[in-house]
C-alpha cells in the first residue's frame, strides 16, 4: 500500500556559472512514496513547466546507481540520509509526510555550479587522464584467467573499482579533498598485476594532479560515509603509501617486489 507525501523543498537555484544563486522554496505535493528522489524532482519539474517556469536542473543519467552522474546535498548529507545509496536509488519512503527538505549542489572550488544543482566535475576526469589507465597490447583480448590473481587481491581491486566517480567524497569533505576518489582509482589498478608497469608513475601523477584541484586529507572519514559505494578509507592509506614509495623507490628496481 503506497502512501503519498506532501513535502516542502528548499532548493538552490542558480541561472549560470557566474550568476548569484539563491534558495527557493517549492511545494512537492502528492508524491508517491515508492518514487525515487529524482522522480520526486521530476514531478515537481512537470508542475513548474506547466506553470511556464524554468525546471530545476539536476544531474542524472542511469538512475540505477551505477553511472555516478547524480549527486546533491540533501539535508546536509551527500546523497541524502541513506548510507551507501546514490540519490537516484534513494526512495521517498525514507522521508515523512510534511518534511522540509533542503537541496544544495556539491560545493568545492574545483566543482563550479553550472546551473541549479548541476556542477562541473571534470577535474575528476583530469585525475583519470593523469594515470587512470594501463598500457595494454592492442589486438585480441587476452584470455580470461590468463593472469593468475589471488582472490583477496581481486576482491580488493574490485572494491576500489566500485567507485562511480560521483564526487560525493569531495562534497562531503570539509577540505574538499579528492583523496577517496583518487585512492579508489589508483588502487583499482595498482593492486593488480596489469597495473604494475605504471604503478609508481600513476600514483605520483594522479596525486599531483589531484592536488592542483582539491584540498588535502585530514582523515575525518566523512568521504567513506558519504560514498554511495561505501569505498573504504583504507585505500587512502594505500595511496599515501604508494605515493611516498614512488618518490623514494629506485625505479630501476621497481619490477622487484
Amino acid at each position: 500500500m503506497s502512501r503519498t507525501l506532501n513535502l516542502e523543498l528548499k532548493i538552490w537555484r542558480q541561472d549560470g556559472p557566474d550568476a548569484d544563486g539563491r534558495f527557493e522554496v517549492y511545494p512537492a505535493l502528492g508524491i508517491p512514496d515508492d518514487a525515487s528522489f529524482l522522480e520526486m524532482l521530476d514531478i515537481v519539474n512537470e508542475e513548474l513547466i506547466e506553470e511556464g517556469r524554468a525546471p530545476i536542473e539536476f544531474p542524472h543519467d542511469c538512475r540505477e546507481g551505477i553511472c555516478g552522474t547524480c549527486g546533491m546535498m540533501i539535508n546536509g548529507k551527500a546523497h541524502g540520509p541513506e548510507k551507501g545509496t546514490a540519490v537516484c536509488q534513494l526512495h521517498m519512503r525514507k522521508f515523512n509526510d510534511g518534511d522540509a527538505i533542503v537541496i544544495e549542489p556539491w560545493r568545492a572550488r574545483a566543482f563550479p555550479v553550472l546551473r541549479d544543482l548541476v556542477v562541473d566535475r571534470s577535474p575528476l576526469d583530469s585525475i583519470i587522464e593523469a594515470g587512470g589507465y594501463v598500457t595494454a597490447p592492442t589486438g585480441t583480448a587476452a584470455d580470461a584467467n590468463d593472469t593468475p590473481i589471488p582472490k583477496e587481491v581481486a576482491d580488493s581491486a574490485m572494491d576500489a573499482a566500485a567507485c562511480i566517480g560521483c564526487g560525493a567524497c569531495v562534497a562531503a569533505c570539509p577540505n574538499s579533498a579528492g583523496q577517496l576518489f583518487t585512492a579508489a582509482k589508483v588502487w583499482h589498478l595498482n593492486s593488480l598485476p596489469q597495473g604494475q608497469a605504471e604503478r609508481y608513475r600513476r600514483a605520483e601523477n594522479m596525486v599531483e594532479t589531484m592536488e592542483q584541484f582539491f584540498g588535502s586529507c585530514t582523515n575525518h572519514g566523512e568521504c567513506s560515509e558519504a560514498c554511495p559505494k561505501e569505498i573504504s578509507q583504507d585505500f587512502i592509506a594505500y595511496l599515501n603509501r604508494d605515493y611516498m614509495k614512488s618518490k623514494i623507490k629506485n625505479r630501476r628496481l621497481a619490477g622487484q617486489s
Binding site: 546535498m73 577540505n175 566523512e222
Partner: peptide
C-alpha cells in the same frame, strides 16, 4: 591554506557523520 582555498562552505547546515 590549501584547504581553505579548495573548499566552499555550504549555505545551509551540513551534517557531520564521521568527523
Amino acid at each position: 591554506r590549501m584547504n581553505l582555498t579548495s573548499s566552499i562552505k555550504y549555505k545551509e547546515k551540513r551534517t557531520w557523520i564521521a568527523a
